[in-house]
Design a protein around this nucleic acid. Structure first.
Lengths: 144, 144
DNA sequence: TATTGTTATACTCTATAACTATA
DNA sequence: TATAGTTATAGAGTATAACAATA
């Protein structure tokens, strides 16, 4: 395939722009999926940042969420009230709290992710060939 | 290409899941792009829903945003305070307000869209072949 | 003295209900 | 009487600053 860096950049912008627009167009459905569960986008992000095993300090969560520590306290309080997360203390430094998901929290997290990963109906109208090309190209995008 | 509906659905889920995850991973950068301009996600959605010509009634905006009419009032008030939008009255029904973008509002809207459409660096590491396949498949997704 | 996290507080955002103007 | 939009008000979410506990 004959090409130049400039042409490549133009293709990338085209592809990305379309991906972005498509995601934006499907945003209301995700918003409703949260609403049905009485959750906010913040709650979903909170669930996404946590797991059952690896405890996260309040500080690191505030860093990831680019918010104030007091706001992280508020968000985790909320997840705890839902029964989705819990704070644990560690012996080595009693100032620190480690936040982990509860069983319930992990279940809701998985449910949400499954729903968010369900392709919009329009995508199924693409040919298997196009779908395969899409999946393959996006796989290479993996860690970058 | 030999395939079945089931295999096709699996491919679609794979492609969509990867697209979704990639978009989520790049969300903080978009959040910062808004923050640099002192704008909220709501402001961006407001700008995206409006243009210079086609006036939108408050009611239709509230419908699109799936929020209460009073909240739409609040959002448009905010855009007006920024100088991004203005309300116009029409002679045929003096209850109705039509909201349009100002020149400034359109400029900021275009700036934001341009920034959001700028592909993340990782995308440029894909081969021209993959980028073309991506752009081509996504183009077919156009209106669905 | 520095760091982790919470509490106090004010400000912004969002929704429900009451209201004004027009149809 | 019904509809478009705004205002009044209360509640939820987010930030800054002061604080308590531990290192």
């Amino acid at each position: 395939m004959p090409t130049t860096p400039k042409a490549s950049a133009a293709l990338a912008r085209q592809a990305w722009g379309r991906m972005f627009d498509y995601l934006m167009r499907t945003a209301p459905e995700r918003s409703r999926a949260l609403g049905r569960r009485g959750l906010t986008p913040n709650d979903a992000r909170g669930l996404a940042s946590l797991d059952r095993d690896r405890g996260r300090t309040m500080r690191s969560l505030a860093g990831e969420w680019e918010c104030d520590a007091s706001n992280a306290t508020w968000i985790v309080d909320r997840l705890e009230r839902f029964g989705f997360a819990e704070r644990r203390t560690i012996a080595s430094d009693r100032r620190v709290k480690l936040v982990v998901l509860t069983v319930k929290g992990e279940r809701v997290r998985a449910e949400l992710l499954d729903e968010f990963h369900t392709p919009p109906p329009g995508l199924l109208r693409l040919s298997p060939r196009d779908l395969a090309a899409l999946a393959r190209a996006l796989e290479k995008l993996g860690g970058v």
